[in-house]
Amino acid sequence: MSAPVLDARGQRCPMPVIALARAARAQPPGAVLVVLADDPAARHDIPAWARLKGHTVSLADDGGHTAYRVVLGGHPAEKSTAGA
């Protein structure tokens, strides 16, 4: 079974991160999500989001966009507060 793919190409930040967070909410820990994005800010924001939420992310460039593969960690349904 392949991971669900979100297409966020053409979307500007923070939309790709919002789409990812929404998709992640319905998935259990360990689930894999893939998002395609071409906003240069996503390169920083998707890994930063993953770090804040305890997920891990790897990325691969594919022509004009980047594919981000996110492995969910922790408990995505739980609200968390990022510390200072």
């Binding site: 991160v17 240069p40 800010a41 920083h44 930063a48």
Partner: peptide
């Protein structure tokens, strides 16, 4: 923020420290 009208490039400072560049 990166998402200003005049540039698509995120803040290089926030990018360099691995912080969110939006919001």
């Amino acid at each position: 923020s990166a998402c200003t009208a005049d540039t698509l490039q995120p803040s290089h400072v926030l990018a360099a420290i691995g912080a969110l560049t939006h919001g």
